[in-house]
Simulated scan of single mutants.
Amino acid sequence: MVTEVTRRISILGATGSIGLSTLDVIRRHPDRFSVYALTASTRVEELAMLCREFKPRVAVMADPGAAQTLAGLLSDLPDIQVLSGMEGLCLVASAPEIDTVMAAIVGAAGLLPTLAAVRASKRVLLANKEALVMSGKLFMDAVAEAGAELLPIDSEHNAIFQCMPVDKIRDPAGAGITRILLTASGGPFREHSAEALRSVTPSQACAHPNWSMGQKISVDSATLMNKGLELIEACWLFNTTPERVEVHVHPESIIHSMVEYADGSVLAQLGSPDMRTPIANGLAWPERIDAGVAPVDLFAIGRFHFERPDLVRFPCLRLAAEAFEAGGTAPAVLNAANEVAVAAFLEGNLCFADIPVIIERTLGATAVEPADSFEVIFAKDTEARARAREQIGLLTV
């Protein structure tokens, strides 16, 4: 019989899709998991409701004004401490009272608190791919130095993790692994012409056919930049190169990724397109627990389809591979430019088809430097954002 052990968890990004899915899994297993801290950026009322249900010790709002409002809403719950800003986020990510951190803050904003969790030797459930994309080797070195436990939560990387021998995660060649087959849904515009992509609206881009996700990652999925970021993430997580990672567009989103072995075997992880599966895997690993996910009905699906990504209509995947090959601060520039471009698109200030244009121009206008410190990476992130805004201004004049 398995002895049940309660894990104390801080959830960074509790009001986002990953955070809410994490809380749903925790809700199903109150004897195994308890919530120490919940954080959000500006969604005060949503976080207040979650605090009333899960009774964390600490609640953090990234925005100081929002933290004041939250403290007022929770004034009748004096046992919940309300903190704010990056200092508060890093504090709950590294608190001695916890052993697990769900790193689900979207974008570059998640790097410092995720790094704080790593340096405090926590089990880090990594759903913030941008942190690893930006800082690559520095981040993985920090994991090794601190002895942190890094478990991938992106459905694709979690699938790869499940298909590899545990002791060979950082040595795929030593396990006889020849390729990683990274699947992609293709997004909602897989069959759109280049001309049709110019008229895509934010609401259309956020309506993913298979997954329920936040706005930013939904747009990234639609441009295939999400797959580009995942390509970089896979290279760092599994110590490999883009030449050994092949992207397969799989519209059904049932096979979440595959691993090819030297003997011709291909191991695949299948499941419904529901993030609670990889979240439950990370929370309970190496055990398996109920995640509330419906089983896959293979008879209803009938057949699977695969196709190669179209790098002409969707060049973001190519840009990501090139940034990884360039090395240094190039992936941080890629990420920063993408975040600025996506925000401009969502605000109605940029055409969907021009997102990769801004990214490519920003990469060309920003010098690559050795990524030998986090200070350099953050400085380059700031520079790239300014250059991306300049490029948007030039494009829309």
Rank of each mutant, 00 (worst) to 15 (best):
M1L: 11
R8G: 06
S17V: 09
L23H: 01
R27F: 03
R28A: 14
P30A: 10
P30S: 12
V35R: 05
A40L: 08
V44A: 06
A48S: 15
A48V: 11
E53M: 07
P56E: 01
R57P: 03
R57G: 12
V60E: 09
A67S: 13
A67Q: 07
Q68V: 15
D76H: 13
Q81H: 14
S84V: 04
G85W: 10
M86K: 14
E97T: 07
V101N: 08
L111P: 00
L111M: 04
L112Q: 14
P113L: 05
T114E: 13
V118W: 00
V124F: 07
V133I: 13
S135V: 01
K137R: 15
K137E: 14
M140R: 10
V143G: 02
E145A: 15
L151Q: 00
N158R: 04
N158A: 10
A159D: 02
I160Y: 00
P165E: 04
V166Y: 06
G174R: 04
T178W: 05
G186S: 08
A194K: 11
E195K: 13
A196S: 13
S199G: 11
Q204G: 04
S212F: 05
Q215W: 13
I217A: 01
S221E: 03
T223S: 10
L231W: 00
I232W: 00
C235I: 09
F238K: 00
V245S: 04
E246S: 14
V247H: 08
H250E: 05
E260I: 04
Y261P: 04
S272T: 15
M275W: 07
N281M: 14
G282Y: 03
R288S: 14
A291V: 12
V293R: 01
F299W: 09
F304H: 13
F304N: 03
F306Q: 14
D310G: 10
D310P: 06
F314D: 02
P315K: 09
C316E: 13
L317V: 11
P331F: 11
P331Q: 09
N335T: 07
A344F: 08
L346A: 11
G348L: 10
L350M: 13
C351Q: 13
F352S: 03
A353Q: 11
R361H: 07
T362F: 10
T362W: 03
A365I: 08
A365V: 12
T366V: 15
A367L: 10
A367Q: 14
F374V: 06
V376H: 02
I377T: 05
A379Y: 03
R385P: 01
Q391I: 11
Q391P: 02
I392H: 01
L395M: 00
